[in-house]
Design a protein around this nucleic acid. Sequence first.
DNA 1: GTGAAAGCGCTAACAG
DNA 2: CTGTTAGCGCTTTCAC
Lengths: 330, 330
Amino acid sequence: MSSSKITIKDVAKRAGVSIATVSRFINNAALKESNRKKVEKAVKELNYHPLLYARRLAGGKLDTFGLIIPGYEGIFYSFYALEIIRGVATTLGEKGVDLHLNIFWNKDNFKTSLVDGVIMADVIGNQDQLKRLVKEEIPLVVINKKIDDKNVNFVTIDNFRGGYEATEFLIHHGHKRIAHLSGDLRVECAKDRLEGYKSALEKNGIKKKANYIKTTNFSRKEARGRLEELFSGQDSPTAIFCCSDEVASEVLNFAEEKSIEVPKKLNVIGFDDNPHCLYGNLMLTTVRQPLMTMVQEAIKILDSNIETKKPPQRVVLNTELIIRDTVSFL
Amino acid sequence: MSSSKITIKDVAKRAGVSIATVSRFINNAALKESNRKKVEKAVKELNYHPLLYARRLAGGKLDTFGLIIPGYEGIFYSFYALEIIRGVATTLGEKGVDLHLNIFWNKDNFKTSLVDGVIMADVIGNQDQLKRLVKEEIPLVVINKKIDDKNVNFVTIDNFRGGYEATEFLIHHGHKRIAHLSGDLRVECAKDRLEGYKSALEKNGIKKKANYIKTTNFSRKEARGRLEELFSGQDSPTAIFCCSDEVASEVLNFAEEKSIEVPKKLNVIGFDDNPHCLYGNLMLTTVRQPLMTMVQEAIKILDSNIETKKPPQRVVLNTELIIRDTVSFL
DNA sequence: GTGAAAGCGCTAACAG
DNA sequence: CTGTTAGCGCTTTCAC
């Protein structure tokens, strides 16, 4: 007997109760103990699992959340993106909620009707999709991007402050020639980190130099190119604040090749606290961003919004400077 | 107006046809051109999207596939697992099919009723889940594991042959002291690669040495431990066939630290063709496994099984030895 | 080619 | 606390 054909009716018949009672059992509603036992027994014996689409049509939940991440070359090699997916997958897994994963390339074919709520990471290139989700009034929370629309929940990380503190840390160590290898500036967090960097220089009376600011796409390869530029002239920097640990690792590689001693001659701060970048002899000083916390916050918000519509939440999490080997006094 | 409330009725009314006609339009059934246009217009104007759960209840498709991967520590750092996820996500994305991702930790809470079919990777620790899916008669294909049940579709890679060819390649280069750093032997592919290794030695009249065979959990860390053992005695190997490129990279690291020249004094072959392991000056000789092809095959099989039940498919893909820098004649 | 109508399996009133 | 019943939005006969 194929268990896929078992319906609530079969269970009701076997347990000798009405389908309503079975439904109540499934949904943990109040039930007389004797009935509860009978139903439980029938459910087990028949190996019954409610058909979620039927349940949903009748107003119930699907117990699955959507996660939308904008696609880009190398996303599956990106610590950040994978941490998000990992965080969501494991957090939901513990709750018995399934994950409907959508990588947005260019077509918006996300199936709203198959999820109870959605987490949207970043929103870059898919603003229209965001609009659509808002319009459809599905429980939604955006992560790692501040949203203007006052009705949209989001939880982000204070990238500005992260950049500010990292830069100031370098300044406090006596550095004045501080470069920044930024990420793609169309990405909000990259922009914010850059702004934090600039602001720290300003506040500390250090004049910004345009050619100390180099943009990458977060990749090692581009970092390498920008580094060549950075060290081609005469007044090369004594410290570099990087948009990611990967980029910072590349700085370390570069320094080793060019025999520039770290941290004696060059200081480096990364961003992410990426365990992959901890090999080698030098432990990277870096800015840790609470990705896991961000994801968990987001899920909490989603949960509460699925029960009943809540006032929009807008939360900003703090970064933490992790001090290791790559910064020292001049 | 919230577009989430738009139903087939609204479209029918607006287009001046019956809901049956709208349904036919959605499902690309035959329609008079004039009606087709009217419906198309109404659908656009109302921004109508069928509710998939309702459609499903009535016998339609969800256009989403499930992917189940067994969870393990470090899965999100595993090239293999990520390639599978990436392959499935992108291949499905191109078809407009969504991905319902399930990482199996220990509870089977995969929601069969939310997918049209499922791809199961590996099956380790979740045999019961496999049984359940078979019993539920949902279109199913297992990847990277041979299944005894004659009714289950699978597509795997010939890991035995991969191991055999790699080992034989070393033998043909004059090696006799060939070690193998295997993966976790509870994983089928690790076992098959080991068997391939053994078989190649045997066929070439080289006696196996128990202490040349070391088991890891595919990780760098364990590889390091086993390497210490391997090189602690007097007759250390002149060549190592590794279960993965990560492990092989660690061999390279180890060799460099111990000043064992590769490939002069030590030859190394990896498995995976993992681009992450291509940094550094030495390009790894390795066995490429067609993960993407495997995934695509699986999806093709699933597709055909969703239309109508097909006879079970059992396909085995070949590996390819990629010859680079880490093997040379003795 | 098209419309009317009968469910698909479940939840949520509503009565008891 | 429990059973009866009316849909949820869609697909699919079955007539026309």
